[in-house]
C-alpha cells in the first residue's frame, strides 16, 4: 500500500449504490417498452461477433440506450475475460 493507493481512493458506498442503480434503472426502463425493440437482437448478434475473437460469457455484454436531455446514447459495454483465450 503506497502513496498511489492512498490517492486512488475507493468509491464510497453511496457512489457504488448510485452506479448500480443507474445501470439497473436504465436497463429496466428500456425493457419497459421505452427502449427500441432491436436491443435484444443487437445484443445477440454482437455477442456472436465478439465470440469469434474473444471467448466472453453471454452476460459479459451490456447494451443500453440512455436518454440525456434530448439525445439518445447507445451504450455498449463488453467485459473481457482476465486471460485472453489461446
Amino acid at each position: 500500500m503506497g502513496l498511489l493507493a492512498f490517492f486512488r481512493s475507493k468509491p464510497t458506498s453511496a457512489q457504488v449504490a448510485k452506479e448500480r442503480l443507474r445501470i439497473i434503472v436504465s436497463q429496466e426502463r428500456s425493457k419497459r417498452g421505452g427502449g427500441p425493440d432491436y436491443l435484444p437482437l443487437l445484443r445477440k448478434e454482437l455477442l456472436e461477433v465478439i465470440r469469434k475473437y474473444v471467448n466472453v460469457s453471454p452476460d459479459a455484454i451490456q447494451v443500453n440506450v440512455e436518454r440525456e436531455d434530448g439525445h439518445e446514447v447507445l451504450e455498449l459495454s463488453v467485459a473481457l475475460p482476465e486471460q485472453p483465450s489461446p
Binding site: 458506498s13 453511496a14 448510485k18
Partner: peptide, 12 residues
C-alpha cells in the same frame, strides 16, 4: 458517503 444524496436520487 454512506448514503445517496438528494441530488443522486434526483439524477437517477
Amino acid at each position: 458517503g454512506e448514503m445517496m444524496s438528494v441530488e443522486d436520487v434526483k439524477e437517477i
